[in-house]
């Protein structure tokens, strides 16, 4: 593994000095892994032999990855239902569009639910994606009830025998208990018609340590099944997602790398871990 190879080459060539460790620590922290995680890694690495340091670091980072399945749920006998959730502006609506494109490439039919009835032009934004990708978007009245839009969409998905129903929800901060409850309600109402198979939490790669609380709060209100880590085309490393995996066991399922519908990749552990230090 080419984990921060430059640093490690230096370490291997001589004995490791305090400033080398400080440099490694800085690289770890700057990836947004968190100070404690970084220190844990350093402590482990310090105990290992010079030529084993990189392997130790790579192995411990890899050991933090979740062991839960990373493939998107798939049911053949009924529509598979996916809810997209997260804090404001992380890329939920765009990721919804990207998932459509991903599923279409696997010849699956998709129906969208515009359950963000709150933000200005959120419905129109999803409709634009819907018409670009040629999928139907179920909408409701502005400022209407998000759960009832989701319910209508679930009913429609079942009628039409659609493969996937994707529900785009409004951004909400995990600290707003009323809005978090609303999300729980969307889920419960959909489940009157169809089981919710995936709840994907969209995490912006630029997010710092607050991402961990976010994940925990969303998990407790809607049982998140996976993460979509967006904006990985920028300079942020997205290390908080690994911290989230470690802390909550929720696996990263997809990586977002741009603003177009094609910019979605299934998670590749090696690439991700490598990228933390480049």
């Amino acid at each position: 593994m080419a984990l921060f190879s430059k640093l490690l080459a230096k370490i291997r060539s001589s004995s490791t000095s305090e400033s080398d460790w400080a440099e490694i620590e800085q690289a770890l922290i700057e990836s947004d892994l968190g100070a404690k995680n970084a220190r844990e890694i350093i402590d482990l690495a310090k105990k290992s032999k010079g030529d084993q340091i990189d392997v130790t670091i790579a192995d411990s980072l890899a050991s933090w990855l979740s062991s839960s399945p990373r493939e998107l749920a798939k049911h053949t006998e009924r529509p598979t239902t996916v809810m997209i959730v997260g804090v404001n502006g992380t890329g939920k609506t765009t990721s919804t569009a990207k998932l459509v494109s991903h599923l279409q490439s696997e010849k699956r039919s998709v129906l969208l639910a515009a359950a963000d009835t709150f933000r200005a032009a959120a419905v129109e934004q999803l409709q634009t994606w819907g018409s670009r990708l040629g999928v139907e978007v179920i909408t409701g009245p502005a400022n209407g009830d998000a759960a009832s839009v989701a319910f209508d969409a679930a009913t429609r998905a079942q009628e039409l025998k659609i493969d996937y129903l994707i529900i785009d929800t409004a951004g909400r901060l995990h600290t707003k208990s009323g809005l978090m409850d609303e999300l729980g309600k969307v889920r419960r109402v959909v489940e009157k018609v169809l089981p919710v198979d995936e709840v994907l939490l969209v995490v912006d790669a630029t997010t710092g340590q607050n991402g961990i609380v976010q994940a925990k709060m969303f998990m407790s209100s809607v049982s998140v099944t996976g993460l979509i880590l967006t904006k990985m085309d920028g300079s942020a490393k997205g290390g908080v997602a690994l911290a989230i995996e470690r802390e909550t066991g929720t696996p990263i399922k997809f990586i977002g790398t741009g603003e177009s519908a094609k910019d979605l990749q299934v998670f590749d552990a090696e690439r991700y871990l490598d990228g933390l230090f480049h």
Partner: peptide
């Protein structure tokens, strides 16, 4: 600037 931003903040702000 989003208050939730992490360690990338400086690099991006400088850019």
């Amino acid at each position: 600037l989003d208050a939730m931003v992490g360690q990338d903040a400086v690099r991006t702000a400088l850019a």
